[in-house]
Design a protein around this nucleic acid. Structure first.
Ligand SMILES: [Mn+2]
Ligand SMILES: [Mn+2]
Ligand SMILES: [Zn+2]
Ligand SMILES: [Zn+2]
Lengths: 177, 177
DNA sequence: GTAGTTTTTGCGATTAATTATCAATTAACT
DNA sequence: AGTTAATTGATAATTAATCGCAAAAACTAC
C-alpha cells in the first residue's frame, strides 16, 4: 500500500493489526464517513457524532474522540486547529494533495488552497534542524469579503479590530539581515 | 506610531483610549512581560499568571485571560495554537520580524524560523479570494532529533506513530493537474 | 481636584471540549 | 470453540476558557 494512496477498510485493518490493534465496525464507519466527505469539509468530533446519529449508525462520543485521535496519530486523519475552539478532522492527503486553510476570523468561513512550496519550505526547515516532518499546516487568518463589506472593523459588535495587521502594501521582497 | 514599531505603555494607552477603552496597571504589566520576554519564548495564560505571581505582581487569572485576548485582537499579541492543548501568546512582530514554528509533537520543543515567502503566499491567496490578511501561521509538526534517537516511533510509550507521514524523499517539484 | 459615568477587576460559578475509569463486549489468534 | 487482550459505551472527572456581578478604578467634564 503506497503512502500516497487512500486507506480502504482492508488497509486500515492491516495497519491496525500490524500494531497489535483491532479493526472494529466503529472504526470502519468513521473511515467511511471521512472518505466520502466532500472536498473542503471538516468535521469536529461532535459533528461526526451527530452525522452518524442521523444515519442511524450511532457510535458513542467517547469512541468518536478515541477513534479520530488514533487515526490522526496513524496519519489517516489530519487534526486541524481552525478558529472555533475545537478540533476538526479531515483525511490526510499527503503530497501532492496537501493543502492549507484560509480562515475568516470573523465568521469562520474556511477556504482550502494548494501550495506545494509551503511543504517544501517546511521540509527544508526540518532538514536544517534534524527533525522528521510529520505534517505542516499554514493557517491564514483573515477577514472575508462579506465581513469587509459589513464595515469591518468598526461596524462590528465587540469583535476583532486589529489596527496593526500586516499591510497588504508592505514591501515583501528583501531579506532581513 | 508606525505599525512596524513596538508598543510602549504610552502608545498602548493611546490606542486603548482611541477605542473608548482604558489603560490599567494590569495591562501595562502584561505588556511589559511580553516586551521583555526572550525571543523564542511563548506564554500561556496560566504561565503568565504564575510568572507575575512569582514577581509579586499578581493579577487575577480572569484578567489575564481577558487581557491577552484583547491585546491579540488589537494586534499587539499573536495567539498561537501549538501542540499542547492551550493557547500561547507572543508579541506580534509584523513583517519583517514575522516568523513561524517548528514543533516536536513528541516533546513540544518549539523552534522559530523566518520565512518571508510564506507571508507572501498568504497575501497572494488573500488577494485572490478578496480577503484582508490579519496573520498567518505555519506550524510544522515534526519529530525532534532527540525523539528520533530514542527510537521514534516504535520505542515510544503509547504515543504518536505515523506510518504514512510525508516522506522527506518525496518528489516536490511538479504541480498536480 | 471633585463628581459622574463607564470600564475594568477579582471572585466564584459555569460552560464546553476532551480525557479517564471501568465493567461488559468483542476481535484476533490458536 | 476457547483464550486473551483490545475496545466499547456509559459516566465521572478534568481542563481551558468564559460569564455574571458587585466593588474598584480610569477617564471626562466641570
Ligand atoms: Mn482541509
Ligand atoms: Mn514565536
Ligand atoms: Zn467572514
Ligand atoms: Zn521532541
Amino acid at each position: 500500500m503506497s503512502p500516497l494512496s487512500s486507506y480502504t477498510a482492508a488497509s486500515l485493518k492491516a495497519e491496525l493489526n500490524a500494531r497489535g490493534w483491532r479493526m472494529t465496525p466503529q472504526r470502519e464507519k468513521i473511515l467511511h464517513v471521512f472518505q466520502n466527505l466532500p472536498k473542503g469539509n471538516h468535521l469536529s468530533a461532535e459533528e461526526l457524532h451527530n452525522l452518524l446519529e442521523r444515519r442511524g449508525e450511532s457510535i458513542s462520543l467517547s469512541t468518536i474522540y478515541r477513534s479520530v485521535k488514533l487515526m490522526a496519530r496513524m496519519g489517516i486523519l489530519r487534526e486541524l486547529e481552525l478558529a472555533e475552539g475545537h478540533k476538526h478532522y479531515e483525511v490526510n492527503q499527503p503530497y501532492p494533495h496537501h493543502h492549507h486553510h484560509l480562515v475568516c476570523i470573523q465568521c469562520n468561513k474556511t477556504l482550502e488552497f494548494n501550495n506545494d512550496s509551503i511543504l517544501k519550505h517546511s521540509l527544508k526547515q526540518c532538514e536544517k534542524e534534524g527533525f522528521q516532518l510529520i505534517d505542516c499546516q499554514l493557517t491564514v487568518m483573515a477577514i472575508c469579503p462579506e465581513a469587509l463589506r459589513m464595515g469591518w472593523p468598526s461596524g462590528l459588535p465587540s469583535n476583532w479590530s486589529c489596527s496593526r495587521s500586516i499591510s497588504q502594501s508592505e514591501p515583501l521582497e528583501q531579506e532581513e539581515e
